[in-house]
Amino acid sequence: MLGKLIKYEWKSVYKVGCLILGAVALTTFMGWLAFQSPMWKEMETGHSYSGAVAGWLNIISGLTLIMYVILLACASFGTLVYLVVHFYRTMYTDEGYLIHTLPVTKHQILVSKILVGGIWMLFVGVSLILSAVFLCMTMLTSIFGHDMAMFWKEFVPVMDELIYMMRVDFDVELGVRFALGCIKLLAAPFITLTILFGAVSLGQLAGRHRVLMAIISYIGISIAMNFVGSVIRGVFAVALYGNIGQYMWVSMDIGFLVDLVAAGVLYFVSWNVISKKLNMV
């Protein structure tokens, strides 16, 4: 049954997901166009292209880049909002009458929603990273023109130095850090969704104004998570006094662990609400 739930959940969100991916691709293309403006050439050559046309081009180019940043921010935020609204709509409005009368367990329902939603957030996240990398490369190519080889010649030693500094001066095991970073990145969408779904479910415990209660719940959860994180960080700050590098990493790990625990708790909250306290309007 879980497989079927995942199949239908996928079917019901993939269209919007593809739309957002398409928007990211289109926005990236616009960004690429912006870098074709002569403005960027001037940075390298110092030669000024005069004329009204070039001036307008530069303004449009600049605006397009601003739009790029805004649109990409909207893409990730929009995906998140869409998934949360979709969850609310299919679980707690009239459409919820369908899912809650299926002969499936409440765990299966939750897992299918978190899994499919998380995967789409991951898709969008990866597409944003790819887009940003692509645009950075485009920018560099625009500025340096055909001298990219020279850029790499300078870039690689700088990176080497940076890695060396991290390892020796800050005592960082880069392999472990990289692996951890990847895990966090992969887990983040699922954690975020689980927490948000939990907040939506908490709102259902209220008699009325359930959406408002969901938002208040989320604010409460965020405050609680920050508070707990700060307290633990405070303890470590005392313990690791003077070792800024290590503290920085530990602090990041604490943030992740708090998120993870919160997600676990809120998963249970959602499950509890829909299996023991469900009251569909």
Partner: peptide, 28 residues
Amino acid sequence: NGLLTPTQGTIRINGQAVGVETKARVAY
């Protein structure tokens, strides 16, 4: 149909509490 949680009392359908098994046998 398990869309509301009773304040008190019990429901048994085919001898089972409302859940996955009863939902497979109730058309609503």
